[in-house]
Design a protein around this nucleic acid. Sequence first.
DNA 1: AATACCATACCGCGATCCCGGTATTTGCAT
DNA 2: ATGCAAATACCGGGATCGCGGTATGGTATT
Lengths: 219, 219
Amino acid sequence: MSPKTRPSDPITVIVVEDDVLFRDSIRELIDDSPAIRCGATFESCEDALVALQDELAPDVILLDVDLPGMSGIEGISHFRRVSPASRIIILTVFDDDDKIFNAVCQGASGYLQKSASAENVGACILDVVAGGAAMSPHIAAKVLSMFAQYSEPKKEYGLTIREKEILHHLVGGVSKKHIAETLFISQHTVETHLKNIYAKLQVHSQIDVVAKALREHLI
Amino acid sequence: MSPKTRPSDPITVIVVEDDVLFRDSIRELIDDSPAIRCGATFESCEDALVALQDELAPDVILLDVDLPGMSGIEGISHFRRVSPASRIIILTVFDDDDKIFNAVCQGASGYLQKSASAENVGACILDVVAGGAAMSPHIAAKVLSMFAQYSEPKKEYGLTIREKEILHHLVGGVSKKHIAETLFISQHTVETHLKNIYAKLQVHSQIDVVAKALREHLI
DNA sequence: AATACCATACCGCGATCCCGGTATTTGCAT
DNA sequence: ATGCAAATACCGGGATCGCGGTATGGTATT
């Protein structure tokens, strides 16, 4: 999330694409836009990664998915490491849901179909540089559903305040004895609370409690 | 993710919106589309929730954010409980990032600005019923960045295959003894592996291991 | 006033875990 | 082939946990 601050500077883009024809055509297409400049093109992730190590980071990396050697999807994490400020747009021939989904999970900011028009390409790049993300409703839904699933099921087990407190310490890796000391109560009391927690969460060990708490985000 | 299977049926929509004028105008707008029917309108989440309890679930719920009583954002989780099959679209006046971000995290499938054109409204509803999600690049980026952050930092601690296997069972709540039985090795061996895991992860108990594994997604 | 629930405290036994060792076999790589 | 890392195995003592109890004072609700 670092939107371009000086829009007067041309946006620099690099292209990683093994097909020569397409690589050249997209370069032209980019250079036609006044605000965008194509810095360099590469035919593999490996080449691009080497070049990026001692050059200035481009604003945007256009990255093909199907590449010889390291795939575009794999490449994403590497690019993000060597050039964290660069935003990544995936180039695909088909609207391959799973690949694109993986890509955005890896940190891509958007994707473009290779059939995209010049305006689309430009708009997508600008969106992304402005701090946005470009993706189809279908991909968006996939991402959201995982998100919702992750943040939603905060089931309630009827834990009392004290029990939640104990649970919290427990998840933090504190032993019963130490919890007792911290809360100024007897260790027996901690055990009683713990027993009640076990019953409510239907588990039978600290491990299970911690696992369940973390998995269901009761922390 | 349950796309409408019989597109010949009209899509039923309900509207929850306190402003009478806007409520009526959006109802008209919806009923103008042949494929979409406005089932009912409500002026608060509370009213709508009561009505939904003994009525058929609508395909889509159009939900205003600013409502008297329960806000639209709060309402999302309730609607999802009483009518899990319904998809939720948020109505907003402004492009309020934080609210919309919260909304999608709660399980909304998209949002519409109140200034949206008739085509936009229709397209958004159709997108969402088709199993997609509708949101602006800016919101999409916010969601993605959280996602990337969540799936990225899979640190490596140099665990061996066997150690990862042990760790996996441990996180599943299996006791050392049982792990030994499952893997056809002695319990002593499990303990040795465990000691090595402790050293590598720099922890000192099963609890810590499980907590660390779940938190850093080493599972 | 009665009831219910919570937080607190205590006991003891058997199971499990933590950690300090040592040691052999296996497999991969130089 | 030689060496190193991983996987395997074993021991024992002290700490911790799991669970079966019982019990009492406080607070909130009815």
